[in-house]
Design a protein around this nucleic acid. Sequence first.
DNA 1: GAGCACTGC
Length: 765
Amino acid sequence: MSDNPYLAHLNKKKGGSSTPAPELLAKEPLFGFLPRRVTSAQVQRALESDVNPFTKAPHTAQYKKILAARKKLPVYAQMEEFYKMFTEHQIIVMVGETGSGKTTQIPQFVCYSDLPHTKGKLIACTQPRRVAAMSVAKRVADEMDVQLGEHVGYSIRFEDMTTPGTTFLKYMTDGMLLREAMNDPLLTRYSTIILDEAHERTLATDILMGLLKTLAKQRSDLKIIIMSATLDAVKFQKYFGIKPKEGVEGEQGIMQPAPLFKVPGRTHPVEVFYTQEPEPDYVEAAIRTVLMIHRAEDEGDVLLFLTGEEEIEDACRKIKLEADDLMNNDPDSVGPLACVPLYSSLPPQQQQRIFDPAPSPRSGGGPPGRKVVVSTNIAETSLTIDGIVYVVDPGFSKQKVYNPRIRVESLLVSPISKASAQQRAGRAGRTRPGKCFRLYTEKDFMSELEEQTHPEILKSNLANTVLELVKLGIKDLVRFDYVDAPAPETLMRALELLNYLAALDDDGNLTPLGAMMAEFPLDPQLAKMLIVSPEFKCSNEILTVVAMLSVPNVWVRPPSMRKEADAAKAELTIPNGDHLTMLNVYNMYMQNKYDKNWAWQHYLSARALAQAENVRAQLERTMERFEIELVSSQDMRTFYDNVRKALCCGFFMQVAHREGEKNNYLTVKDNQVVGLHPSCGLDNQPEWVLFNEFVLTTRPYIRTVTDVRPEWLLEYAPTYFDLSTFTDGETKRALQRVINKRAGKSEVRVGSNGDNREKKKRKKN
DNA sequence: GAGCACTGC
């Protein structure tokens, strides 16, 4: 038997169902607990104990206080039902609406059943976002009366707040668990894995669901809980269903859906209103509705959902102007209004303003003030604002769309799903009964909106994901058991890219280079150029470029100071490439670190630059692990050329050739007509450019662009630039000329005809 | 001569 002290006792006594002596329980609250066979009565007794069963320290007064609050959570009342289901099944789907306490309580329930601390195992609970993983872990550590980072911890990128050997309950981002799976495909450290917020369908959660479904068959000791919102539960139940007679010849197993554990939420009712007719201009209608609420509805704050920064800032200005007018015209019935914008690129300090209280009445006894938060989707999932009573939902959000044919992800304002509309409405009922005004007709809601928002896996470029899956040992990507399978063309595009980058061989097997690439938290193109950069004596520089490309835009351009911002940018610009400018910006930032105001004075985001520093350090550690040298060229004549050459090794598939005159480029092979983005710092329009991204806004643009030489492309990516694979056109002819010229040059050396001399002469002019 | 919905490694 194991060295489990509780079990050891049990074996001596033969049978542990009789109630143990109180003195024993006082010292060993977990006495008599059988792993995975505990009852809610046992657990409740342990919870009431004066001794912490995990630390053996006496419980604090705070513990008792929190416990009293926990007992009021809906999920607490269903503890017995939970243990019964958990004991009997390997996989459970759980539905718990907001306020049910599922995220904090269920993992603790599992701890008492798994007793992971006696077996050196852990329980993992994944979250789609870092802040959630951190804050929930803190809360649960308090509830369990332990230090955060000891028995209960969290693990997110850049921060591992766990103690190996001590931590047995770990909250983590879904991406982190996926990373761990790449090095331990059986996830042997875990006794139970809980995927929380599965309905959000992040890429990582979707891949994890596929892995866990397979893993459940290989590891009978592993338990899995999928926690989600109501609408998705049936889909997950079916996906994780089992055929009882699977494998038995001649038997047609009947699919048994995974059991559902359902816990009610604790929210207030929200009354939903629709418009009679469709609204032609949703922004105008939204502003009108907010003002109507302000004039006619009882006290309570308003949350308005719009799609982006510009729209939000614009709406805030208009609402403020009109609300001030209303108040001045009718001070006895209309109170003051504060309008607060909210979107992710807003500095944290300004984001905090959403938590400010509503303005007070202008005079004692006057009409109350009201706060209006105008937000992107960030307020739908990531941030909750208490005190919201009214929600205005125009029914749109910006959504990512991926077009595998031209390999471009773009953002498109699109109608939201029913699930999303429901989530938005719910934001009105967190503190008291509320109202939701939908700026579309009920008929449109019923018949036009999709049930669910498309999962990320259907909207993304999967190059990264495919590399991860191959690293995970998934052989047949097309037949992998996805919850929702991506378009075959998306997978083909990803495989093609990875093959050109030599991460996969022609049979789709991972190459040693690909295995290394998969270890970097980067897109494959970036990982590739980082790994090859020592060959060009510029790994220090490429590491910086890669870090800068991994963080949000560092340039700040306030609408009122565009000229100044552009001038500041011009001073830092390196004329033959935006990538080189990024390198320069980072180096200048590091040189001026003693000056706290440097970033601000140069219209740069200090936050983004600090992030780049952080990413750079993390990538540097991974490079050390693989003994990839950090080197720089001392020769200033070749310094930037080396960087440009290394860029070609990763991004040779993202090259465009100038055709015709003003700002007209054609992407190589895909033949998309694009223009240099206005933010581009190139001083002329070079014939060949390499770009980091292709964006589709008012017209197709390429952004973050560097001037490259066609000779480099032919030399470092001969397979991709094999001319027999090109369609006829100016690009092919231009490349052919380069090849002819090179051949000609070598012929000149052996003494050649006048044609080549003629060509050389032309080139000089 | 334009923009950055939101996450994550």
